[in-house]
Amino acid sequence: MTEPQPPAAPYGAVDPDPTPPHAQAAPPGAGEPPSSAPPGPPSGLANERGPRRRVASTAAVLALVGSLAGWGWFASENAREGWWEFGRHVAVEPGDDGWADVDTLSVRLTAADTATTIDGVEPPAGFEYLVLAFDVEATEVELYRSCTVEVLDTQGREFLAGREVPNGDPYTSELMCGTSDPEEDPVPGAQSVLVLVPTGAEPVSVRIDSREFPPATFVELPLRS
């Protein structure tokens, strides 16, 4: 006598649970008719790799941009330093009392007049002299020995004091901005310079500069018309 067998599944029927529980996640297309195309990766894996690759791409781009920026910064070091140190970018303007201060130097414009003759000397036709007077105070010695004076006009031209002008007291070609011997050779409190300018030039400011000033710094004293 044989034991009774369970009834055979009818032809075409699907086993209700043919796979172990850990493999129950059906691949895409499961239950669909088979096709020639290979099955794609599991959708869960795709969801994990997508963000990871985006992060990698972003990091690569950032590294590229950062390295290019660093290379540019390194390569342009001399140009940047030269542009800053040898240019005029920081204008020191006077306060309400008219004094402009750069470290231990204080300077004030006290007068600005034009002249067609200085001590009997006339400029060439088409030119005139600009007479500038300053009050100067230097509270520290051995600094700011001399300062150049230039007049800026509305056309952006800078006219240098002391060039092609009569020499002699009380005019100097540069301002004395410091001294190594304050007892014997003190900084004069009142100083004057002459500037040759074309007739008709419209000066807007006086610029005072010195090699010993901090980099890019100069004094700009506006001229009131």
């Binding site: 790799r49 690759r53 791409s57 690569a60 781009v61 590229l64 290019l68």
Partner: peptide, 16 residues
């Protein structure tokens, strides 16, 4: 994914 890879390769080529 492949588009990102091409973008990185493209930028590297541009840098070179």
């Amino acid at each position: 994914m492949r588009r990102a890879r091409w973008a990185v390769a493209g930028m590297a080529a541009v840098a070179v």
